[in-house]
Design a protein around this nucleic acid. Structure first.
Lengths: 363, 363
DNA sequence: CTGTTAGCGCGTTCAG
DNA sequence: CTGAACGCGCTAACAG
């Protein structure tokens, strides 16, 4: 950690350390002559301020902790990038730490940040208890993304996942689909639950009864999406569309469907959620609800900056946006509005036939 | 940045700060009785060591800088995760910063890390000049991943990209392909160049002349892969397989091919490189060369740890591994070894016909 | 074993 | 304008 010190610069420039400090930080007036001396000395010695010492002296570390779920997650990475961009040029820098191990009662991840004396905290979802966050927020500016902490509403950046679920499902309904399956996320995830609520509301609005059997859990992952889809197919319950709670599970769904010979969207439509960076490039390109991850990250950073400069934080509203691509299309035979059947036991049901519209047996 | 101080703990426990420090750090012997007093005080006050002050006093920040290309890149994210894992429990923590803006003569990213006095540096590829790195490495332990810095060989973690290119291309050759296109990466990227070299060597070994027109640049991105593939198809030059320099461009290639009606792998085989987390789930699942990103990240971290503890660093060799999935298959009509034609102007060539094997006109 | 005392590198009064 | 001196929170000799 060695390096040239302020004192060495002062010595070289034949001034006091205070003067050098003033010049570096632009604090107080300094004569042009001395200023030049000092600048020369800095240049000559290759001086670089020691941020650690500055931190201790000033009482702020210029670091902002970011508590994330998984640093490698395609979903969060957009936010990470936005956060990084948001702090560009501010002097602050984000320090990322993954929550990872959930059964961690000591909140080791948090500890890493707190002991490093981060000046603020950005929390991306996660499992840390509300009251823990609330307590920390009393001493440390905090912005929470994708989650609503009671008592901290003004610093919670949210997108309306409920609305997104609504958009996705309405889109499918508009295309004539009446039997829409849903691949849900873990019910521990606020986002997932909200998306599903949107799905249910859309159905209700359209007068389409909810068929609980068409709702299966997909764990937010590709594998989960695959398993869920296989389960749906085995059910033998007809459906012409799937709304997956995120793109990852939608990808898994598409894979299974295509492997089984279903054409997307001719046989079955698929809609995802998140608009991951690769979702536009899979085949067929995925219709999805875009999460403005980059913007959200930037906004979170900006909000932190506001908080740190005592300005009243401004959290813009974020809207999910439906991105229609090629994985969704009109329901086969959608000219006929099929009366929904009661959600009876799927005893007589046989596996959906391949290469045929899953809804055919309805008509 | 406020918080309980050592001194307050000492006061509460009626001992000196030195004693508290000893207990916290396990330095020196302390009587059990005092130890309990101190532990109680710590507990009562909720003391948490100030890492900033520790850093200044000890002369080490317990932070390791990671200079990456893009914090949101699906390719690098595996390494990021590996790095984070590698430092788990070591007391050190990675600080990521994206190089981002290439036309940055001041190396702002580096500056962020250096002024924070990171104890070591992990450099993931990038454009920072060799001599700059070399100079920094004299004061700061450094590990470079995916790049060879002359004079720093022992700290350069590499996978044999050349070998990977060889594997991928041989695989296609083994399947009977003789007209193999290559979507190259930017020639500023060491990795990309090496992969292409492997491709060329494999062709040579097999006695298949290189057709330079079948090598197009894809910029490591999905869009690039799409453009490259369109270009290839327009060429009218027959080919039955594509080896893309990374999965992202392979994804773009698959998309274009499928949109144009080609079946993968029946009409055209595709092989990628990296094995991104979603590559197993796209349709058809991508045959690719796996980069052990997670392991590499862990190894880089371990190497840094070794360097920091003066142990002789150990960098294991990493091998690329071919992962055969469903995007590659036997070349159509591969029972006939087609004599390679001379790479003449593609004047008489017409666009490859859809739904037909691109190689048909050869046979 | 334990307390006292210097620093670590820099910011910031407080007198000139 | 400028410099001397103290403090940030903690570690590390150095004496007891």
């Amino acid at each position: 950690m060695a390096g040239v010190t302020l004192e060495q610069v002062a010595l070289e420039a034949r001034v006091s350390t205070a003067t050098v400090s003033r010049i570096i930080n632009g604090t107080g007036k300094v004569s042009a002559r001395r200023k030049k001396q000092v600048m020369d000395a800095i240049e000559k010695l290759g001086y670089r301020p020691n941020l650690v010492a500055q931190s201790l002296a000033r009482g702020q570390s210029m670091n902002v902790g970011v508590l994330t779920q998984d640093i490698s997650s395609p979903y969060f990475s957009q936010m990470h990038k936005g956060i990084e961009q948001g702090f560009q040029g501010s002097g602050y820098h984000p320090i990322f730490v993954s929550e990872e191990w959930r059964d961690d009662q000591d909140h080791a991840a948090l500890e890493v940040l707190l002991s490093r004396r981060v000046d603020a905290l950005i929390v991306l979802g996660g499992y840390i208890e509300d009251d823990v966050l609330l307590k920390i927020s009393r001493n440390t500016p905090m912005v929470v993304v994708g989650r609503l902490v009671p008592g901290l509403e003004k610093q919670c950046l949210q997108v309306n996942n409920h609305h997104g679920g609504l958009l996705a499902t309405r889109h499918l309904l508009d295309l004539g689909h009446r039997h829409i399956a849903h691949i849900a996320g873990p019910d521990t995830h606020y986002d997932a639950v909200e998306r599903m609520a949107g799905y249910m509301q859309a159905l209700q609005e359209a007068g389409v009864p909810l068929n609980r059997q068409l709702v299966v859990e997909g764990q937010f992952s590709e594998e989960g999406g695959m398993r869920a889809t296989e389960k749906l197919l085995k059910l033998g319950m007809p459906f012409t569309a799937i709304f997956a709670c995120n793109d990852q599970s939608a990808l898994g769904a598409q894979l299974v469907l295509q492997k089984k010979g279903f054409r997307i969207p001719q046989d079955i439509s698929v809609v995802g959620y998140d608009d991951l960076s690769h979702s536009a490039f899979i085949y067929p390109p995925l219709t999805t609800v875009r999460q403005p991850g980059l913007k959200m990250g930037r906004a979170a950073a900006q909000c932190v900056l506001d908080l740190l400069s005592e300005k009243s934080p401004h959290l813009p509203a974020f809207h999910n946006e439906l991105v229609v691509r090629e994985s969704s299309g009109r329901a086969a035979g959608s000219e006929v509005i099929v009366p929904a059947e009661t959600a009876t036991l799927a005893v007589e049901a046989k596996p959906v036939q391949k290469r045929k519209r899953a809804s055919k047996k309805d008509s």
